[in-house]
């Protein structure tokens, strides 16, 4: 575990906590894409099936369990408890446009043609694009609450920090996972436009709004 990896994980954890706190305090999930949250639950579920097959550390197991549990809890809040505040009209991105191609790619390009390995690969590919319904929603409404932009910034920073972690691991541990690195770069690139808006607007105290 290097400092980039730890900061990445903490950023990911922070993002989830910001999202839960926003929903809990405001009793609302307005501006949040339920599609993205469903995709994240699918990502965590397919990736962390190794909870049953291998043990890495208490830290690793705890984080995995938290990510899985929080993703399903978020879905429960959005589609049940705070359903009335869910902005489904603006959450119109079609999940199958992501899940189907990503599933096909996971079958074709993977480290080993084994069920768990294919599911792991699927989760890595799916995570890289899972934010698209959320970004689509922000662009459709043309704005995002400040707390939502903090959530997105923390979530985007996590994979960027993981890239530094992979560079570090490559040089110091001779460690390299092409699938994770390529998908991680794609994932980070998708946030670039948002990062720019966050730095130029939100950090200067303005609300994130897109030009009409």
């Amino acid at each position: 575990m290097n400092v980039f990896r730890l900061l990445g994980d903490m950023s990911h954890l922070l993002a989830i906590l910001i999202l839960l706190l926003k929903m809990w305090k405001t009793r609302s999930c307005a501006g949040i894409s339920g599609k993205t949250q469903i995709l994240f639950a699918l990502v965590f579920t397919t990736r962390y099936l190794d909870l049953f097959s291998s043990f890495i550390s208490i830290y690793n197991t705890t984080m995995k369990l938290f990510f899985i549990a929080s993703s399903y809890f978020t879905i429960f809040l959005m589609y049940s408890k705070f359903k009335a505040t869910y902005d489904s009209n603006h959450d119109s991105f079609r999940m199958e446009f992501l899940v189907v191609p990503v599933g096909g790619l996971a079958f074709l390009v993977n480290h080993e043609f084994l069920p768990l390995e294919i599911l792991w690969t699927f989760s890595i590919y799916l995570e890289s694009v899972a934010i698209l319904p959320q970004l689509f929603m922000v662009s459709k409404t043309g704005e995002a609450e400040t707390i939502t932009s903090h959530y997105l910034f923390a979530l985007g920073s996590y994979r960027l920090l993981y890239i530094f972690n992979w560079v570090y691991r490559y040089y110091f541990d001779g460690f390299f996972d092409l699938i994770a690195v390529v998908a991680g770069c794609v994932q980070t690139i998708l946030y670039c436009d948002f990062f720019y808006l966050y730095i130029t607007k939100v950090l200067k105290g303005k609300k994130l709004s897109l030009p009409a």
Binding site: D9, K64, W120, Y162, G174, D177, A180
Partner: peptide
């Protein structure tokens, strides 16, 4: 380059 997978990550 030898490719090792990152299963110890989250």
């Amino acid at each position: 380059i030898e490719i090792i997978s990152t299963k110890d990550e989250l």
